[in-house]
């Protein structure tokens, strides 16, 4: 079940780009929806995922393959938890960007994503800056030239 949920999310993304993954996505979706209504997964999708992963490992390390095969459900749960925690942190990060932007509150000059304000007046190579404090791209300098 857990493997199906993870696969469903991953495949939903991959299915956007390739028809190959749409078939698997449908199988994963069928599996998840059936399990939510307390029916067994009749596509064997979870079993397929488990076998493919185990087979890949079997070629490299038998012990690891055996461990994965034996504890596949538990490993799936670990990945699920990691996935959910990552999702929470991602959502929290997006919320912060939306509310505060990407500038450091202690140092408003330091902006990660949004265009920042840099003191480039004295370093503007073309000398065409109109003010002492202007965005870098205004005066043509960029990157390391701006401080």
């Amino acid at each position: 079940m857990v493997a199906c949920i993870i696969a469903l999310i991953v495949l939903a993304f991959m299915a956007l780009f390739s028809a190959k993954y749409r078939v698997w996505f449908r199988e994963a979706l069928s599996c998840v929806t059936r399990r939510f209504v307390l029916k067994s997964c009749n596509t064997g999708f979870d079993s397929k995922v488990k076998s493919v992963v185990t087979a890949k490992l079997l070629k490299k390390n038998v012990k690891m393959a055996r461990f994965t095969h034996k504890y596949f459900e538990a490993i799936s749960w670990i990945f699920m938890i990691i996935f959910v925690v990552s999702l929470v942190f991602t959502a929290y990060g997006l919320y912060n960007i939306a509310v505060y932007g990407s500038c450091d509150p202690q140092n408003p000059d330091m902006c990660v994503l949004t265009p920042g304000i840099s003191s480039c007046s004295h370093e503007c190579p073309e000398g065409n800056c109109q003010a002492s404090m202007v965005p870098c791209d205004t005066c043509g300098c960029s990157g390391e030239e701006c401080s």
């Binding site: 397929k48 076998s51 493919v52 087979a55 079997l58």
Partner: peptide
């Protein structure tokens, strides 16, 4: 071992 699992593993190995 499930027969389908064996078949998939034979194919993928």
């Amino acid at each position: 071992l499930d027969p389908h699992e064996i078949a998939i593993m034979l194919d993928h190995t």
